[in-house]
Design a protein around this nucleic acid. Structure first.
Lengths: 202, 202
DNA sequence: CGGCGTTTTGAGAGAGCTCAACATCGGTGG
DNA sequence: CCACCGATGTTGAGCTCTCTCAAAACGCCG
């Protein structure tokens, strides 16, 4: 995930220009049609991007959590094309468009780093989408474990809670618990706290 | 989708440098560890990106179809980090790295267009991922229809076959047929060939 | 200790998948 | 022109898996 975060490449000049803003749950960060201001990053809480359809129903495009950037494409357009609403109390950081684009012009390396980050995000998202094509929970978990095995190819350190993982995998937490229990029972994996070890059939 | 394709922004100079290559099903386009050559686009057929895990099993990262680009991140790295294998007989087009990166250096606008395209792809992928979080087939189809309604907000032209759509939605084609039939029966939509019209409750 | 969130297990229902049969359509070749 | 074929579209029936609802054990922190 680190490679898909802006925190690694953002030039110091841009970083210094970052401005934080607090939002209360339900408050709009921006509205469709509004003038774009820059690159946004969620610091705390969650912000959802939505569109409102003809019949007035809200259609969710994405829910961004801490660390994630928001509406990157708006950097290259003058108006927002969806609404951003705080789902919880939240803090977002704004890097003004002027500074960001100027950094890209001055320093082709920075522009390239930005492109590289976006390209990695595309890869990562496509992989997660591929994962969702896997029907059976067991296979989906196996896919995740295989992809997230450390350098030794056998152990995985879970970053957050199992509930979070369940959400990322598109399973209920109960389904994930059961699946992990089954895998451990069958001897395919071993668990110690938030660490999982694959017992590869040699 | 058009906005997420390279066909719209790729400078003529780069486009002229494109080289096509034919692959037979099962043939490798590149292998993990190999030197990266440039930006790849699938013209015909399908190419899958995979990694091989410890136990020798193949883990699929992505399957790219006609029009899609492949391993964009490899533009910014010297080695591939996965394998690309033709799943069917296929034709891929290679835009040499030299030409592409040179175009980005010479013309900041081109670099920006590339970033913009990637940013739109990220948005689009996140939206599709959001869609997969929707459990019920009916709601998933509604979400798709709401997001893909034309300018009038009421009609949708299906690009491909319903089978393709089913795959994109993560449903079996049977489930999609049934869901559409149900929606049409209930009067929520109308179908004429590959065109669907929403009958919004006024 | 008493709450709160995570982890865990149980039982039941419902949704979609699987398998299967058939209709439809477009193209191909006799 | 018609028979044939493959792919798409459509509907039926049963089954399996996951979701949902529920309850309880566990750990953490005030």
């Amino acid at each position: 995930m680190a490679a898909t975060s802006i925190d690694n490449w953002l030039p110091a000049t841009v970083r210094a220009a970052g401005v934080d803003r607090e939002l209360t749950a339900g408050e709009a960060l921006f509205r469709s049609g509004g003038r774009t201001e820059g690159l946004l990053q969620v610091i705390r809480g969650r912000v959802r991007l939505t569109r409102v359809d003809r019949s007035g129903r809200e259609v969710v495009l994405h829910v961004a959590g801490p660390g994630e950037t928001l509406a990157e494409a708006s950097l290259f357009s003058t108006q927002y094309h969806c609404d951003a609403i705080a789902s919880t109390n939240a803090v977002v950081r704004l890097y003004p468009k002027r500074e960001v684009l100027a950094a890209f012009e001055d320093d082709p390396k920075a522009a390239q780093a930005f492109s590289a980050m976006l390209a990695r995000q595309v890869m990562s998202l496509r992989t997660r989408l591929e994962q969702r094509n896997i029907r059976l929970a067991v296979d989906r978990v196996r896919h995740f474990l295989a992809l997230n095995a450390g350098a030794d190819g056998r152990s995985i350190n879970l970053p957050g809670t199992l509930k979070d993982l369940a959400a990322e995998l598109g399973l209920t937490h109960e389904a994930l618990y059961r699946t992990l229990a089954k895998l451990e029972h069958s001897g395919e994996i071993k668990r110690r706290g938030s660490k999982i070890t694959l017992a590869h059939c040699v």
